[in-house]
Computed example of a mutant assay.
Amino acid sequence: MTLQRLLIAYLMVVVLVQALFAAFPGIDLAVSALFADGSRGFAWAEGVAPTVNLLVRRMGELAIFLLLAGILYGVMTGKARGDDLRLMAYPLLCITVACGLVVNYILKSHIGRARPDTLAEFGGSAQFTPSWQVVAECVRNSSFTSGEASMAASLAIPAVAILWPHLSRTRGRVLAVLVAAAYVAFTSVLRIGLGRHFLSDTVFSVLFAAGFALALYPVLGIARARKHLPVLSPRRRALELAEQRGVF
């Protein structure tokens, strides 16, 4: 699928998702209610889920640190240049723009949407508001949208894009997509189950990450850079030669 087709598909998904949550805002309450024990709040908040959530978040932060350290080391030693730097910068820029700027700095600071665990429906006192509605139910660090979901998607989507030409045509690519989707979905479900975010918070965060990943892909020249991924390209060439010789 070409980049143009991916962009068209992405825009269609954005329109459909926005229309869905605008027409049926109660979806958020219905999904959150699946994890809530009536007015007594969210049971996951009292179990092992907060620890798991913290572990998942720290793993993402570790990946970010390793990417940043890799860039700094490569620049200082001269061992990473051109394509290598662009590949490492790809997910970092997605996180910086989607997660850092759009989600945390702009939306979470200005939308003011109350988190599920503070709503009157779940034992709190705040009022439910649909996505994108600017209110004052939350003074700072509001529910809309999810920082963790955007960070997970900003790591997973560029990773799949970078590895794509080095994966086998069917099995490897399907597996990569499933692993990436599972990571993002698991992160999102944790945030919903803990009562910290609504479904729409996580969905729009993933869409933001996907949008910036699509936008940065041609800007950074990822299509060319990923062909020469240092760790995988020699193995890929060996597999191609083996296939030509009829070994596989």
Rank of each mutant, 00 (worst) to 15 (best):
I222Q: 03
K108R: 06
G70R: 11
A22D: 15
L107Y: 03
R169A: 15
A63V: 09
A210S: 02
V184A: 01
A80I: 04
R236N: 15
L11W: 11
A215R: 04
A182G: 05
V189I: 10
A176T: 12
F21K: 08
H228W: 06
A185T: 11
L3A: 08
S125H: 14
T170F: 10
V102Y: 01
L87W: 05
E243C: 06
D84Q: 12
T170L: 06
N104Q: 10
G221E: 07
F198M: 01
E240I: 10
L20P: 06
R236M: 15
I106W: 09
L29E: 12
G195N: 07
S188Q: 07
L29N: 12
W132T: 11
L199P: 05
I106V: 13
L190T: 04
A238K: 11
G82H: 09
R245S: 14
S143M: 07
L229Q: 10
I8M: 06
F204I: 13
A176C: 08
P50G: 02
A242P: 07
A30R: 12
A36M: 07
L101G: 05
R115Y: 07
A223L: 08
L85E: 08
Y183C: 14
F128W: 07
V75H: 03
L20I: 13
L6M: 11
F144G: 08
Q244D: 10
Y217P: 09
R5P: 02
A210E: 02
Q4L: 12
E240D: 08
C99E: 06
K79I: 11
P130N: 04
P91L: 02
L199F: 04
L214K: 11
L54C: 07
G82L: 05
D28E: 01
L101V: 13
V189A: 11
W132Q: 03
V56Y: 06
F212E: 10
H228R: 14
R81I: 09
A159C: 03
G195V: 00
G172F: 04
Y105G: 10
I95A: 06
A120C: 02
T187Y: 02
E121G: 01
R169P: 12
R224E: 15
H197Q: 01
Q18C: 15
S205L: 07
D28G: 03
D117A: 09
A23N: 08
A161G: 02
